[in-house]
């Protein structure tokens, strides 16, 4: 190896130094930072400005029909906390977010392991599982509304009737309606998250399993000792997406149950849209949005911190997943 090859170029060395009045270094930093400006511009105008404006409107009686808005202090926040329908919406939203996150994670990982095995028609089976992720949730909701119709002629009830089962009020009983929305949400998203896990699973070296087999590890021990720990970066990403997506769910419950019966499957996002757009109560809807943003932030960061903690405990030092690097 020649000396020229190992010695850094003089100019680069000089620019790389921040000390000694290196004006070129500052210029380089400024140029580098300039590339961030478009992203900063988008962030400020599409996130910060609307957020600040929403917060301001939450303190007013803004109707959306006139720029005039009277300052009402915390009245909108008080109304929300005293409104049973909004509290019901908050309750079901949390139930949906946590329920789908847990169920999809529990189902998608074993599914991934099975879909990763070599068998005839594997790609077709993978496609079948992935398919529900393609149509919009709104369309799925409308289709499932007919499947789960509480009438005797409903698709599912017709099938059950062949086994002598009486019609079940899937969408007309509070608990069943909540369960139905969650189950359809799980059905629609499990395949997508299984594909996410598959990408991580395929990057686990086969040698680990060969060594484990030689050491006499059972398939169950291999799963809990190798697969699951090395999938923790994927778990972090998947659960984060599920939790944030679940908290802002709107289209599925709206089309499947329209928030009913009563307020059993009402969601926060539906409440914001109905109050703001439908009822011209932008002040109230803004207050709800602010509270919701804070709640989502707290939940998301808590979940992220928890999963990162678990990830640090399980991830193998010699391996670096995309989420942990």
């Amino acid at each position: 190896m020649s000396a020229v090859a190992v010695r850094p170029p003089r100019a680069l060395s000089k620019r790389g130094s921040l000390r000694g009045g290196a004006s070129g270094g500052w210029k380089q930093i400024a140029v580098n930072q300039a590339f961030l400006l478009p992203a900063l511009f988008v962030f400020v105008f599409l996130f910060v400005v609307p957020l600040v404006q929403t917060f301001y409107w939450s303190l007013t009686d803004f109707t959306g029909y006139s720029p005039e808005a009277n300052f009402v202090g915390l009245e909108n926040y008080t109304k929300i906390l005293q409104d049973p329908s909004m509290l019901a919406g908050l309750g079901f939203t949390l139930l949906f977010a946590v329920g789908t996150t847990v169920l999809i994670t529990v189902l998608a990982i074993p599914l991934t392991v099975q879909l990763n095995k070599v068998f005839f028609g594997r790609n077709f089976v993978r496609s079948v599982w992935f398919f529900p992720a393609i149509p919009s949730m709104a369309i799925l909701g409308l289709v499932w509304r007919y499947v789960l119709s509480p009438l005797e002629s409903g698709v599912l009830n017709s099938v059950l009737a062949r086994f002598g089962v009486e019609p079940i009020g899937w969408l007309s009983v509070d608990s069943l309606a909540r369960l139905s929305v969650i189950v359809v949400g799980v059905w629609a998203a499990t395949g997508w998250h299984a594909v996410l896990y598959t990408a991580y699973l395929q990057s686990i070296p086969g040698e680990y399993y060969e060594v484990a087999k030689i050491d006499g590890a059972s398939p169950r021990q291999q799963f809990f000792g190798i697969t699951l720990p090395l999938l923790t970066p994927a778990v972090v990403i998947s659960t984060f997406l599920l939790m944030t997506g679940g908290l802002k769910v709107f289209d599925l419950p709206y089309t499947l149950t329209n928030g009913g019966p009563g307020f059993a499957t009402y969601t926060i996002t539906q409440s914001i849209i109905v109050s703001g757009v439908g009822q011209g109560r932008y002040g109230l809807a803004s207050a709800l949005a602010v509270m919701f943003t804070v709640a989502v932030g707290i939940l998301s960061f808590s979940q992220l911190a928890l999963t990162r903690y678990i990830e640090r405990r399980f991830v193998w030092p010699g391996r670096c997943g995309a989420a942990s690097c």
Partner: peptide, 10 residues
């Protein structure tokens, strides 16, 4: 009291 909304993006 009547005020115009805060137009941070005025």
């Amino acid at each position: 009291m009547s005020k115009r909304p805060l137009l941070a993006g005025a």
